[in-house]
Design a protein around this nucleic acid. Sequence first.
DNA 1: ATGGTGGCGGGGCCA
Length: 263
Amino acid sequence: MNQFSVATWNVNSLKTRLAHLTDWLRVSPVDIVLLQETKCEDASFPTMELEAAGYNLSFHGQKSYNGVAILSKYPIDETITGLPGNEGDDQARYIESVISLPDGAVRVASVYVPNGSEVGSDKFAHKMRFYDALSTHLSSLFTSEEPVIIGGDFNVGAYPVDVYDPKALDGTVCYHADERAKFRTLLHQGWCDTYRALQPAMQQFSWWDYRANAYVRGHGLRIDYLLTNPAATDRLISSHIDESLRQKEKPSDHTPVVATFSD
DNA sequence: ATGGTGGCGGGGCCA
């Protein structure tokens, strides 16, 4: 059976994490990689290094902040940059590409939902609006007969099992009821949280704060997801969190989530 | 613990 694999990873600066990324891809040659927080302008994207690693590229960046990208071993066809319906927002947080696999096309997107800073702040309101635009756009992709896979840093833990201390964190940014409701709107549309679908009760995290020894203390959240529409869910084989990247020297504060599908 | 650490860029913002 032919398979393909997809990963999402918030690298927290692509240039700083480039060796981690290329080393990892040599050991774990994922077919499609969805990156967030590349933090580099398009003109300085490390195209040569990633093409040498065997990937076609689409990217959407800006200076210092945000930035998303798609790496694919298979040809990249059409690409959309910026979240449709959110045109007034000039932050580089969304890119969507169609990939030509040997036996058909899949549509993938890399999304970096705003962190929200602090509940009640202007940035939090921006996060809520971003979710509304994301829900609207994804609802238009959901019923597509082509497989659609949305990966990214959604900056929210969906359920109590997804955070290290749900009682203490309840009401704080990335685990406020309003954010959980926005994210679960996507699940209620029918998008499949691939990791949770295959590990219904397991507690693993995808992000740990750099501060206060959070990783060593197990103080993490699962805020990075690979979501699939029914056409992609039908092909889902496995999904897991690869914690090894968080254990490296000078790691990203996030670690990759990977899923495999039948082609 | 309104701290803590890390990236960018070269001070303060963002996470």
